[in-house]
Amino acid sequence: MGWLPDPVERLLDVALVGELTVVGRNGRPITHPLIPLYHDGLVYLHSSTLFSKKLEHIKRDPRVALAITDPVATKGNPDRATIQGRARLIEDDPHTDWERVILGLWRRKEPLIDDFLKVRVALPLFFERAVIEITPERCLYWADGLTDRAPTETRAPRPVVAA
């Protein structure tokens, strides 16, 4: 079970896109729009090996932030949140691990993915994927998305040991 505030969990449940920021080379923040998934207090993102620079950055530094900011992508929910945490990559077998870990969650949020999976032969590398599992450590929440007001800050109830 997670500790994230209910409104943030609701955002994670509906958001089609969130912005994942990783620590790039030379300490530069690099942000990637990705579809966020949420289950049992953990945030899951995933990336094809085609677009895997973000994975290389995470291997170097697992500290990440995920922002949910776009009401168009959250079915009109205007709230906004940023979740900081540490990421672990699930990439032992990029061909099948992601199906086991996140396909069900992905399918629920983006049913069209099944149409793409049916033509996997046409997109073989797109379906070689790694899962980014984020253990949240700190959450900033803006009701109604008003970032001209200070966010409500929540922290993980106990220290989180990096995987």
């Binding site: 912005e19 920021t21 990783v22 620590v23 300490g27 530069r28 923040p29 942000t31 530094d61 500290r63 990440v64 932030a65 922002a67 900011t69 776009d70 906004r80 940023t82 900081q84 450590e137 700190r138 900033l140 803006w142 998305g145 970032t147 966010p151």
Partner: peptide, 15 residues
């Protein structure tokens, strides 16, 4: 979305 690396070394971002 504005982002930077905070003093704890975590990225932080805000719309």
């Amino acid at each position: 979305v504005v982002s930077w690396i905070d003093d704890a070394g975590f990225p932080v971002s805000v719309a």
